[in-house]
């Protein structure tokens, strides 16, 4: 049996010799050599639901951060073991010891809170919190702990030591429907615990593409086709009077085109409430004036387009209650979206 062991160890020695020769050959030919720095062998890629795979970080693209990713994507972290330093003796004649010992940590930050993401397959696990101890004294109902914990993060650090079958498997985590996808930013940290060299990358999840959204609107509506002639027949003008409503539609956030990204267009169907003969909505208070009856409120509907994430809105529609000259044009804003935009700008 020892003979088998000796043979196996000599095979490992030969394999180590081959790796060293390969490293020397690579150095001589200008190819990459084995390294301990995670930046030299780590690649982080985004697998979007639609479209091609995007490389975020690789040995050819080191040190990138604040990279925008789609919140529906899968982030995959891969390791090229051919570029890792193989185990070697720390002292002359000593046993081979690993030079690469990886820990993968992923954190999501939302506002002031920062929390680790788990599970990360092969590298981090979330152990559930222990069940609260129940009291059997007195035979009453079991009591529960007043405080609860989310669980314990357990890291499974991985050695690179082919001699003992220890590898560094690729891993991934999904952003869709998770707290990571809703985070302000995600931090990925790959550390070689042997050398304390690390690779840190931050990702910013974004809602790319078209997303349905219900939005408030305050349209200033102009009745079309009203002139002096029509006024004599009892048709009254309505010159950009305020009309509150709601828009059922969405906005499009472009990923590549800078202009479209800036404009952030949207479209949908706008439903508004108006009173053409006597404006009953007071824009200064945001309420219908006192004495307004439901029968006084008229409903308009029409397609809507918007810019800047539904902040600035345009509509062309029809008053469903008007007998004639029922078409109108409207320009308006969404106060909710405007406040959200301003809040985010102030926060920056």
């Amino acid at each position: 049996m020892k003979t088998y062991n000796s043979n196996r160890k000599s095979n490992f020695a030969r394999m180590g010799s081959c790796l060293l020769s390969l490293a020397a050959f690579s150095a001589a030919t200008g190819l990459s050599v084995a390294q301990t720095d995670p930046a030299a062998f780590t690649a982080i890629r985004e697998w979007p639901r639609h479209g091609a795979v995007k490389t975020i970080v690789s040995p050819d693209l080191p040190g990138r951060s604040n990279v925008e990713v789609d919140e529906q994507s899968i982030i995959r972290i891969g390791f090229d073991t051919t570029k890792m330093t193989p185990p070697g003796a720390l002292v002359t004649g000593g046993p081979a010891r690993p030079r690469v010992h990886l820990r993968v940590e992923v954190y999501s930050s939302k506002g002031p809170s920062r929390s680790p993401i788990a599970p990360i397959p092969h590298y981090a696990d979330l152990l559930p919190a222990p069940a609260p101890a129940s009291s059997s004294a007195g035979g009453g109902a079991p009591t529960t702990s007043e405080t609860t914990t989310a669980g314990t993060i357990v890291y499974h650090d991985k050695y690179f030591n082919p001699a003992i079958g220890a590898g560094t498997p690729d891993t991934e985590f999904n952003l869709a429907g998770t707290q990571a996808g809703a985070a302000d930013f995600i931090e990925i940290r790959v550390t070689n615990l042997m050398t304390q060299e690390s690779l840190t990358t931050t990702l910013i999840p974004q809602r790319f593409g078209f997303h349905a959204k219900i939005t408030d609107s305050l349209m200033f509506v102009k009745r079309l086709g009203v002139n002096n002639t029509t006024k004599t027949t009892g048709v009254e003008a309505f010159n950009f009077g305020p009309s509150p409503g709601v828009t059922y539609g969405g906005t499009y956030l472009a990923r590549g085109n800078g202009l479209v990204r800036f404009l952030q267009p949207g479209f949908g169907v706008n439903v508004l409430f108006t009173k053409w003969s006597d404006p009953a909505f007071d824009a200064s208070t945001g309420l219908f004036v006192a004495g307004t009856k439901a029968s006084d409120i008229q409903t308009g509907i029409g397609p809507q387009v918007s810019l800047f994430g539904n902040v600035l809105q345009f509509t062309y529609g029809w008053n469903l209650h008007a007998e004639q000259k029922r078409q109108y044009f409207g320009i308006g804003v969404s106060f909710v979206n405007m406040a959200t935009k301003l809040t985010s700008l102030v926060a920056k």
Binding site: H156, I164, G165, A166
Partner: peptide, 14 residues
Amino acid sequence: YNSGFDPELQAQTF
């Protein structure tokens, strides 16, 4: 070893 995380080969080698 934990079959969800660890390679069985590594445990078997030990």
